[in-house]
């Protein structure tokens, strides 16, 4: 196992009175895919959103514990959240491209982070779209609205947009669950490509998907991590009865 890209230590998340995530400690290895699985409402998405401080947007939400990146806790009030989010990108369940052109969707981030040179931006746009395997489909319509793309294309565009600001970690919250099977397999291929350069944490409902794309898997239940191990082990020889029940489809 390589270096640790990101780790959570005793992370607790509360929505008002509701204790959504209990004492979760997980290490995410660099340039690996880690899958978070579990039934709906088990806290896996909430946990994911805490990692790039997205839960700051929800006033009733409180997150305690540590999130470490390069041995520095980023879950403090003194953390520069804007700079942090540049390092930890995110892709959502429903594709959410900006209401802008395809080009602007990609260039928006890098330009804000200081790249003004047109040529350099053009290059970043092309590279990012290539990395997300959508360049061929979009190169002739870069200045058309991104909203005219299909759902699967929009999702790949969103991944390209995230890649364009060169994050270290990419969080994906069920990135393929709103897509058709062909688009889903494209996204899965893409994830396998992306892990050569990025550390990926992916929440998924689809256990086959977790088995296909990830190196490690964490099983969440009622806000607790029941088991965290190599994906192979989780799916073939889990330690806990509950994990076994879930992956064999007895509940969830």
């Amino acid at each position: 196992m390589g270096e640790i890209a990101l780790s959570a230590k005793k992370l607790n998340v509360y929505y008002g009175e509701k204790h959504a995530v209990h004492d979760v400690s997980l290490d995410f290895a660099e340039k690996e895919v880690t899958a978070l699985i579990g039934p709906s409402g088990c806290g896996k998405s909430t946990f994911l959103r805490s990692l790039n401080r997205m839960n700051d947007l929800i006033p009733s939400c409180k997150v305690t514990g540590e999130i470490l990146i390069d041995d520095r806790n980023i879950n403090g009030t003194d953390t520069d959240v804007v700079a942090l989010r540049k390092k930890i990108g995110m892709v959502w369940q429903r594709p959410n491209p900006f209401h802008k052109s395809i080009y602007e969707n990609i260039a928006f981030g890098p330009r804000y982070h200081g790249i003004k040179n047109k040529k350099q931006l053009d290059e970043i746009v092309e590279q990012s779209l290539r990395k997300a395997a959508i360049w061929e489909e979009t190169k002739d319509r870069l200045h058309k609205s991104a909203l005219a793309l299909s759902g699967g294309q929009q999702q790949r565009l969103c991944i390209a947009r995230t890649v364009a600001v060169k994050p270290d970690v990419i969080l994906m919250d069920e990135p393929a669950s709103a897509l058709d099977p062909i688009s889903t397999s494209k996204i899965e291929e893409l994830i396998s490509e992306l892990k050569q350069d990025y550390s990926i944490v992916i929440v998924t409902h689809n256990m086959h998907q977790a088995a296909r794309v990830s190196e490690k898997t964490a099983f969440f239940l009622n806000g607790h991590v029941v088991e965290y191990d190599k994906t192979e082990t989780i799916f073939t020889n889990p330690t806990h009865q509950r994990t076994n029940d879930y992956i064999t489809g007895r509940f969830g």
Partner: peptide, 8 residues
Amino acid sequence: EASLALGI
């Protein structure tokens, strides 16, 4: 959210 997540 999409914009904030880009570090904007």
